[in-house]
Each structure stands twice: as C-alpha cells, then as structure tokens.
C-alpha cells in the first residue's frame, strides 16, 4: 500500500506529509471545541468504549480512536466505520473520567472526512446530511418527506433508488394516515433573510485547505467500509 511504503521511508518519529496535514486540520477543529484540549489527558481506560451503545458495531472503538490519533494515524480513523456509527448519544463524554469531549471530537472527524470526500458520494450519512442541508437552505425548515425521498433515491443507483422509495411507501402512507407527514413543503417567510445569513456564513468559513483523497470504494453502505 502506498501509504505504508511512504511511511517506511520516514525518519523515525516523523509523520508522512498527508498525516501531518490531517493532524493539523484535526487540531484546528479541536481548538474550536470548548474543552477540546483535554484530549491530551486520555488515560486509555476504555470507559468510553464500555459505555458506548454502538461500539459493538464499530471497527475501531472510541478508545482506539484516541490511541490512533496519538500514534499519528488519523488516516485510518477517517476511513473507519466508527465515526459514522456514533449515534451522538454523549454517554462516553458524560462518563469520561478525564473530561474528554469524545462526541464532539468524532463530529470534528466527520467534518474532516466529509470535506475530503472520503467514501463514495452515495454513502448514506453524506447523502442524508446533504439532503437535509439542501432542504433547510431551500425552505428554512425541514420537510421530512422531501428530504427522505431524496435520501432513498440518492443512496443507490437510479433504478434501485426507485425500488428503495417504493419500499418506504408503507411507512410514508402510515404517517400520512395519522396526519404526521406533509406532501408539500412549508417555506418560512424570511427565507431570503435566512439565505443571506447562510451565504455570508459560508463565505466566512471556507475549508482551510483541501487535499485530494480518492473515495476508497464505489460500494455504498457501512459493510463496505472499515475493516
């Protein structure tokens, strides 16, 4: 593997350049989390992993994520299933005896992974976030019907997307029958105002830099990533 051979030619204690860039991007994110610097205090006790309701479905446990970061291996974290399996329940953060904001750190890693386009464009979390953001930018509020329609359509090929949508029809009809789903979106009156805020905020915060990173797979879904 390219990354491995590059690493083997490094002087002892040196990180490969791509890893240094990732590290810098991550530390920039950590700096923005109030209390983020407590990351240094990890004692590797594993309370986070033991408390996590979904660690059984991760390839790297939360404890390992911190260990790998320390060992200079962010690359493998970004390619893991772990950051996308976190349901953001904050149990690890609550129980960490060192006060480490593990959930927020995983959010930072998610952002870096998304910025870099790691994983296929149809990866479920990417599509869900993109559909959600698009819906909110257009209407000012979430319109679940439209967002989910886009989600089921875009997480696979066009033909299978249609099948996916049809599979969701019973759930949708059930919600409709109980007055819990809207066929049409509701737009806020101040949508232009909101869009002006979004446009300005986007200008202010551009990704600091972007290094090329090829999607590791064209296949979609959790089973196709990680180890």
């Amino acid at each position: 593997m390219a990354a491995r051979s590059e690493q083997s030619t490094q002087a002892p204690g040196m990180l490969p350049q791509s890893e240094r860039v990732l590290r810098e991007a991550f530390l920039q994110q950590v700096e923005r989390i109030p209390g983020g610097e407590k990351l240094r205090r990890c004692i590797q006790c594993g309370t986070c992993t033991g408390s996590c309701p979904v660690s059984y479905a991760m390839d790297l446990t939360p404890r390992e994520v911190i260990a790998r970061f320390r060992a200079g291996d962010i690359d493998s974290i970004l390619r893991s299933r772990t950051i996308w399996t976190c349901a953001s329940c904050y149990m690890c953060t609550t129980r960490c005896p060192s006060g480490i904001k593990i959930t927020d750190l995983l959010y930072a890693l998610k952002r870096i992974s998304m910025d870099r386009g790691i994983h296929a464009a149809r990866f479920p979390v990417h599509v869900l976030s993109e559909s959600f953001v698009r819906t909110v930018n257009r209407h000012g509020r979430n319109w679940e019907t439209g967002m989910m329609e886009r989600y089921w359509r875009r997480t696979t090929t066009p033909v299978l997307g249609l099948v996916n949508m049809l599979r969701q029809a019973p759930l949708f009809l059930r919600l409709r029958r109980h007055g819990r789903a809207h066929v049409l979106p509701k737009r806020i009156r101040g949508i232009r105002q909101l869009q002006a805020i979004i446009a300005r905020a986007e200008q202010i915060e551009r990704p600091v830099e972007s290094i090329e990173s090829k999607p590791i797979t064209r296949r979609v879904g959790y089973e196709s990533i990680g180890s």
Binding site: L128, V133, G140, L194, I197, I198, A201
Partner: peptide, 19 residues
C-alpha cells in the same frame, strides 16, 4: 427556522451556528 440539527452541525459548523 430549522435549528440545524446534528446533520447540519456535522457538515458546516459556522453556518449551523448562524442559522
């Protein structure tokens, strides 16, 4: 408007706080 939820927060931080 929408609070931004976790989905927005995981994509664009400043924008999510602004909305």
């Amino acid at each position: 408007n929408c609070c931004g939820a976790t989905a927005y927060m995981s994509v664009k931080e400043t924008v999510s706080f602004a909305i």
